[in-house]
């Protein structure tokens, strides 16, 4: 009788589930991250080969969501380390007193802007990710939509319905766009700019890479995203042009920090140490042009050249302390979609 065999087969399965045990002898670190999913495996492998006694357990989501999750878990933290979260978010956590300061070995080799400026830093940067516009040349031609050269171009009527950008509430990329516009144009002008831009936006996405992926697949002509994602899609053969607007580029650091109260402090510190080693920086440089140790930097294929020069003089402190107010204002203005189309 067939069904009996099936039932018998199920029993061991149930047994294994019930006996989900811990890995013997290894320290398991719960690491919250907003690194791109396609980078995680490599990062994990590199770190674990350097520290075979530590296992990484990733919890990955968009920047905004990881931030919100960490804040929500403030009284009952689940993460040990945050590796790869926007510096602005980490500053916010620092203000909330959630980070464990630690001076990792070799911190002096990093760019100064990549290190929290306290005596014992609460976070250290890994790489910088930089805002960019992904422009689909095929769709541009088909729809008669010219390539924009500046942020301001995007408010022109010709772009109506052809632009997608990430929602800053959930996406770190979305937030660095908004924060950079405010820093570059001034508060009032920036909101006026966004009011105009909003008219042309067809959709706000949850994730920062989705606009570029949608541009890559022609679902939209223009996706406001970040350079790495554009380069990656271009490598795959997407008809993309990665545009770095003339006014300047918002950027943020993906940084590492230890969550206060972790009972695996030693392992967490090992991870923080390793995250700024030369080896780690070389690894980041495969994807990002600007990393913590300038001497390892090499040109990243398909990456826009000299992107570093267009990066604005980002005031992280300001961005972090105004983050919540900016997001609330943004949500009030645009998240309503009082005009859905």
């Amino acid at each position: 009788m067939g069904y009996k065999t099936v039932l018998k087969g199920l029993l061991p399965l149930a047994a294994t589930v019930l006996s989900t045990g811990a890995f013997a002898g290894k320290t398991e670190l719960t690491v919250y991250t907003a690194f791109e999913a396609d980078q995680l495996k490599e990062y994990e492998k590199s770190f674990e080969s350097a520290h075979p006694d530590i296992d990484i357990r990733w919890v990955r989501d968009s920047t905004g969501i990881v931030t919100a999750k960490l804040l929500a878990e403030k009284n009952n933290p689940k993460a040990d380390v945050v590796w790869g979260l926007a510096a602005t978010s980490l500053m916010l956590l620092k203000q909330e007193g959630m980070l464990q300061p630690y001076k990792p070995q070799g911190v002096e080799k990093l760019r100064k802007s990549f290190v929290d400026n306290a005596a014992t830093p609460s976070w250290v940067g890994a790489e910088a990710w930089v805002a960019s516009i992904c422009y689909n040349t095929v769709e541009g031609e088909k729809n008669n939509v010219p390539a924009p050269a500046s942020w301001k171009d995007l408010t022109k009527p010709v772009y109506k319905g052809h632009v997608i950008m990430p929602n800053p509430n959930s996406s770190g990329t979305g937030f660095l766009d908004v924060s950079s516009w405010i820093q570059m144009f001034g508060e009032e002008n920036a909101w006026a700019y966004m009011d105009g831009l909003h008219q042309n936006i067809s959709r706000y996405t949850h994730s920062g890479s989705k606009p570029c992926k949608l541009a890559a697949s022609g679902e939209t002509t223009i996706g406001i995203s970040f350079a790495y994602r554009g380069a990656k899609s271009k490598k795959k053969g997407a008809p993309l042009e990665i545009i770095t607007p003339t006014e300047g580029l918002g950027w943020d650091l993906e940084a590492t920090a230890i969550i206060k109260g972790t009972d695996k402090l030693e392992a967490a510190q090992k991870l923080m140490d390793w995250s700024i080693t030369r080896e780690a920086n070389t690894m980041y440089n495969k994807y990002y042009a600007v990393v913590g140790i300038p001497s390892v930097e090499k040109q990243v294929p398909f990456y826009p050249e000299n992107i570093g020069k267009k990066m604005i003089d980002n005031n992280f402190e300001w961005a972090a302390s105004n983050r919540q107010a900016i997001l609330a204002e943004w949500q009030n203005r645009y998240d309503g979609k009082s005009d859905p189309k």
């Binding site: 969501i65 999750k69 929500a72 959930s170 067809s202 959709r203 979609k337 859905p340």
Partner: peptide
């Protein structure tokens, strides 16, 4: 951009905690 209750609940909880 067309929001419904079901996506709203998800946004409030997962997106904004």
């Amino acid at each position: 951009q067309f929001d419904v209750l079901a996506t709203d609940i998800y946004k409030r909880v997962v997106g904004q905690q």
